[in-house]
């Protein structure tokens, strides 16, 4: 699974992230994808008939109201869960087996490992020698602004810093596909802006395919090449929007663009409709 990614990054060992230069990222194709859960109240479709294509090297953001199956979709792509219908194909342009790594919502950095051990965790599983994985972990920690914290434990640092560690840990295995499930959702606004900028900077250097889930339209517009707007109950694709802003982007640059305002309005209109509709549906179910 990982073997495919590793030699490439070893070759480019001068720049840790720069499996980078060679990486074009994975292509993700979902066709009629569905995930049905069996509950005591009968089957519930978390996802129904989702068809999306994410081209190699693009930054794709999924937005939608809560309960629209965004996280379920991400777990399917990460192979942490299996679809109950449809097909999901993840491939690399060169035909080799693609790898993915996920940055989770909330606490996922292991509290019992130092920051260096956390970042090196995936490398250890892949049998990278101790010295080499320590060096790569240190370089990645430096890249996410945590130089000098290698021997600290997660409880000694802030939530924002922990999320940087989670990102570094995912990047350490040099995945073709980076999956991010509301990684900045629990952070305060300033920290979120800083990490968004950092993510843009890192992604510009790596060219990985990113699939990023958020409920923030603002975040979606700043980060994405392409936005998938989802509808809830069941989770389906409502619309796919191409985001025209040129790269490299800055937060202020994107925000001051008049297109930002109009796109924000369009997307909010859709999500608003979805929220209202799913609320009405929930209320209709209540009196039973």
């Amino acid at each position: 699974m990982a073997e495919a990614a590793l030699p490439r990054s070893r070759a480019a060992s001068r720049d840790v992230v720069a499996g980078a230069t060679a990486a074009t990222g994975a292509r993700v194709v979902a066709q009629g994808l569905g995930r049905r859960f069996q509950t005591p109240h009968g089957p519930v479709d978390a996802l129904r008939d989702v068809s999306v294509t994410v081209e190699p090297g693009t930054f794709c953001v999924i937005v939608g109201p809560s309960g629209c199956g965004k996280s379920t979709l991400l777990r399917l792509v990460a192979a942490l869960d299996r679809p109950t219908s449809g097909a999901l194909t993840i491939s690399r342009p060169d035909g080799r087996q693609p790898t993915n790594a996920m940055v989770f919502q909330g606490r996922s950095v292991f509290p019992w490992l130092t920051l260096r051990q956390n970042v090196a965790y995936g490398l250890k599983l892949r049998g990278v020698p101790r010295r080499e994985r320590g060096d790569r972990a240190d370089a990645l920690l430096a890249m996410v602004g945590l130089k000098g914290f290698a021997r600290a434990y997660p409880h000694q640092i802030s939530e924002g810093m922990r999320q940087r560690v989670a990102i570094a840990r995912a990047l350490a295995v040099d995945p073709d596909l980076l999956l991010m499930d509301e990684p900045f959702g629990a952070l305060d606004e300033q920290t979120r802006y800083l990490l968004q900028e950092e993510l843009l900077r890192i992604w510009d250097r790596t060219g990985k395919t990113v699939l990023f889930v958020t409920h923030s339209i603002d975040e979606a517009l700043i980060l994405a090449d392409r936005i998938v707007v989802m509808a809830a109950q069941p989770g389906t694709v409502r619309e796919v929007i191409d985001v025209p802003f040129s790269r490299p982007r800055t937060l202020t640059g994107v925000r001051s663009d008049p297109v930002f305002t109009s796109l924000f309005g369009d997307i909010w209109g859709m999500i608003r409709e979805e929220v209202t509709r799913s609320r009405a549906a929930q209320e209709a179910e209540l009196p039973r």
Partner: peptide
Amino acid sequence: TYRDAARNLGASRWELFYSVALP
């Protein structure tokens, strides 16, 4: 989430046992 994170990075059952469940 810790289990998912370990599995996502390629941990086997045995690795889950001593690197997540035990600590």
